[in-house]
Write a protein that binds this DNA or RNA. Sequence first.
DNA 1: TATTGTTATACTCTATAACTATA
DNA 2: TATAGTTATAGAGTATAACAATA
Lengths: 152, 152
Amino acid sequence: MDQLVRYAGFGVLAPLIGYHLRRAHGAFVVDFGAALSGTGMRQILVGILAVIANQPGINQGAVGRILDIKRANMVSLINELVDAQLVCRLVDPQDRRAFSLNLTEKGAEMLQICLERISAHEQRMLEGFTDLELAQLRDLLGRIARPVPVED
Amino acid sequence: MDQLVRYAGFGVLAPLIGYHLRRAHGAFVVDFGAALSGTGMRQILVGILAVIANQPGINQGAVGRILDIKRANMVSLINELVDAQLVCRLVDPQDRRAFSLNLTEKGAEMLQICLERISAHEQRMLEGFTDLELAQLRDLLGRIARPVPVED
DNA sequence: TATTGTTATACTCTATAACTATA
DNA sequence: TATAGTTATAGAGTATAACAATA
């Protein structure tokens, strides 16, 4: 399907960034799911593993704020990861309300596997893009911010 | 929040286009909802109105294929638009299985109102972007395709 | 036999409000 | 009183399968 055909159906939507964002995002989500099939992981879970890998000992609320996930929704996500033995959750001795999160060895391996699959998925989705175009796209998307950051 | 702070939390995710796409899309969705509040419209409904405006007489299935919406999910969406008297639905005399869809006068007005609000929303979300950057972003996003198009 | 629209259903993601325990 | 985590719940969005009417 070329540009012209893809644009043909929705005239007034074509100039809207939001529309292209929605389509592109949907395309990514579908292929991302396929890329991770069999691992039991999903986009949001990989995000959580990545944040914990980057900040060992971080607590649930902080992970949620970084990834725009509400506290209430973090609970079952972290439960999933703990049940799958990918994350270990310990009461933080400094603040006994909070849990300190760390990757298990299995969790670190799973993150590695997922990142490899995701890398292949990205190459598939962005086949015709030059390195410059990829850098531009990352930069342009990175400059789009939430109007109001997640509070709770 | 500057680039550095926003990148701080998720090290390995930062190079991934899919991650930036997810964040940017989420930000757009939130502000889009706010932009349309009070109209009773949602992103997907505006998309449907826009496609019908662009191809008067089009049927449900064709709208769904253009917007990647499954046939089964089109039913209640079109019902909503018909109930709100924004779309009129007539049996197509050429193919009596199908419905021919057209905007009502009220539907055309609603689309116009929504497009104006969406335009303001886009300007808000993309405040620091130059025209060149917007064109680049549209082009780059437009080149991302669904790996397998929606069949059913 | 294929296609248009329909119904029923289920799963994921996201959102809010009210609760508990600690600080 | 504020914060970390929890529970319950509800609304979107999206997915599949099976069905009726028409081509």
